[in-house]
């Protein structure tokens, strides 16, 4: 593993900056994920009014992560942040089954956006630590992810609170970008 990560480091450009857009419904866990990526405390999180942005160093990439509030009232502003996005991270509360349909509709709309055409998408099936969480395969079926042909995609089960699965998602992201560049 040590040699592999060293090789990976040599291959990637250390100054490569990625613009990452973090979207999803309110209470999906976007801000918690952002804080976990930045190794910050997650006990004082409040609903995001507007947006948060943080720069995180990871595997030779500088990740500029934009976390935009998910409440319905703010969603019309999402499009202001589409331009130059390298990766879209879409976060889903796997335990909020009542809103699977709503989150699916929002994601479908994002797929139709011209400015996001071809942008790789990482779907985080978050809150896997909750007992009533749906499995990521179930969510992938519900969202019909398998029919995606025009972009790279991945669904990653995770729990932002425990940190489980987050690293794997980021690894996929950096690989997807290495392939793209």
């Amino acid at each position: 593993m040590g040699l592999l990560s060293l090789l990976r480091k040599l291959r990637s450009n250390p100054d490569l900056e990625l613009r990452i857009l973090l979207l999803g419904l309110d209470n999906a866990g976007k801000t918690t994920l952002l804080k976990v990526l930045a190794s910050e405390d997650i006990t004082h999180i409040t609903p995001t009014q507007g947006f948060n942005i943080k720069s995180v160093q990871s595997k030779g990439f500088k990740l500029n992560v934009w976390d935009i509030g998910g409440q319905r009232r703010i969603r019309p502003y999402w499009k202001n942040y589409f331009e130059n996005t390298d990766i879209l991270i879409y976060v889903i509360d796997s335990a909020d089954r009542k809103r699977f349909e709503e989150t699916g509709e929002e994601l479908t709309e994002l797929f139709e956006e011209e400015k996001l055409a071809g942008v790789p998408v990482l779907v985080f099936a978050n809150k896997q630590d909750l007992v009533n969480a749906a499995r990521s395969s179930e969510i992938a079926d519900g969202l019909n992810l398998n029919s995606i042909r025009d972009r790279a995609w991945q669904i990653q089960p995770c729990s932002a609170v425990t940190g489980e699965g987050v690293k794997e998602g980021i690894e996929w992201m950096t690989q997807a970008c290495n392939k793209k560049k």
């Binding site: 209470n27 004082h44 609903p47 319905r72």
Partner: peptide, 12 residues
């Protein structure tokens, strides 16, 4: 934010 305020108190 939405239909159920219960999820908005979060860390507070």
């Amino acid at each position: 934010q939405g239909d159920d305020p219960a999820t908005d108190f979060r860390g507070m």
